[in-house]
Amino acid sequence: MSFVLACPHCGPRPVDEFAYSGEVTRRPQSSPTLRELTDYVYFRDNVAGRQREWWQHRQGCGEWFLAERDTRTNEIISVSLPKPGT
């Protein structure tokens, strides 16, 4: 893995400056069933294709952001700052 990812603030940087935190999940609102909870905690779509995921520019500016990446090619389609509360 040596692809380049563009931090929304710092611009293109080698991927090893970033921390990866997996695909974007949807947290249940309140008291989920055990099934809903395990779905959320343990199961991922793991798509071969475009995926929305969390990244943090850990060694740089520290920002958490969202990236859309093609998991087959590591092509980054877009990056954006999260809109909190959504």
Binding site: A19, S21, R27, W54, Q56, R58, G62, W64, P82, K83, P84, G85
Partner: peptide, 12 residues
């Protein structure tokens, strides 16, 4: 730190 920051990026 990363955990706190991440949740706060979600919650704002």
């Amino acid at each position: 730190t990363a955990w706190f920051e991440w949740w706060n990026a979600v919650w704002g």
